[in-house]
Amino acid sequence: MSSPEHKQKIWQLIKKINTGMLTTHHGGELRARPMVLVQDEYDGTLWFYTDLESEKVLELEQDHDICLSFADPDSQTYVSLTGTGRATRDKKLIDKYWNSFVAAWFPQGKESPNVGMLEIKIKRGEHWDSSSSKMVNSIKTMKARLTGEQPELGEHEKFGTAGKN
């Protein structure tokens, strides 16, 4: 797993993006859908509201493995996280993260029989973060092509149980 400092770094990257694409297994296929962050900090677990009767919950019951990706092309920030997911009807968590955005999806409120949370435990991942503009990155890429070297386009790091670069 990653260090507390690295978890903070990942959180700083993904909280600005706010919406990630959650990929689950459906039979022999992969399915992705957008999910919005609801928490204020990250400790290795991400929480999302869900409809407990949704297909993603059924998919997670059959296969807990997930991939969650965040992308902000404007800032050239990309994060890919893998781990496991499960659904829960934990009332304390539902109360803790409830907000007006979530309420729009559950008109019956917190007491809706199908409101629940997805618990996503992150095992590993990687991120790419470039502070350079697209134009600067294009110039670096062209220079690298001419010199036969790889372009240095910013920070790229792997973390978690899969090991580091």
Rank of each mutant, 00 (worst) to 15 (best):
P4V: 10
E5H: 10
K7G: 01
K7E: 09
I10T: 03
W11R: 02
Q12H: 10
K15G: 03
I17C: 07
G20K: 01
M21S: 08
L22M: 07
T23Q: 08
R31A: 06
V36C: 05
Q39F: 04
L46V: 05
W47N: 01
F48D: 00
Y49T: 02
Y49N: 00
Y49E: 00
D51S: 09
D51A: 08
L52K: 07
E53M: 09
E55R: 09
K56M: 08
K56G: 00
V57A: 07
V57F: 04
Q62H: 12
Q62F: 04
D65P: 01
D65C: 04
I66E: 03
C67D: 11
L68S: 04
S69M: 15
A71D: 11
D74G: 10
S75T: 11
Q76H: 12
Q76T: 07
Y78A: 10
L81F: 04
R86I: 05
A87R: 02
A87K: 03
T88G: 04
D90Y: 03
K91F: 11
D95M: 07
Y97W: 10
N99E: 06
V102S: 01
V102N: 00
A103D: 11
A104R: 13
W105E: 02
P107L: 09
P107E: 10
P107G: 09
G109H: 03
E111M: 13
S112F: 02
N114R: 12
M117A: 01
E119A: 03
I122P: 03
K123W: 04
E126P: 06
H127N: 05
S132H: 14
S133E: 14
V136D: 09
V136K: 14
N137R: 15
K140V: 06
K140S: 09
T141F: 15
M142N: 14
M142R: 15
K143N: 14
A144C: 13
L146K: 14
P151I: 10
E152H: 13
L153I: 13
G160P: 11
T161I: 15
T161P: 07
T161N: 14
A162F: 11
A162T: 13
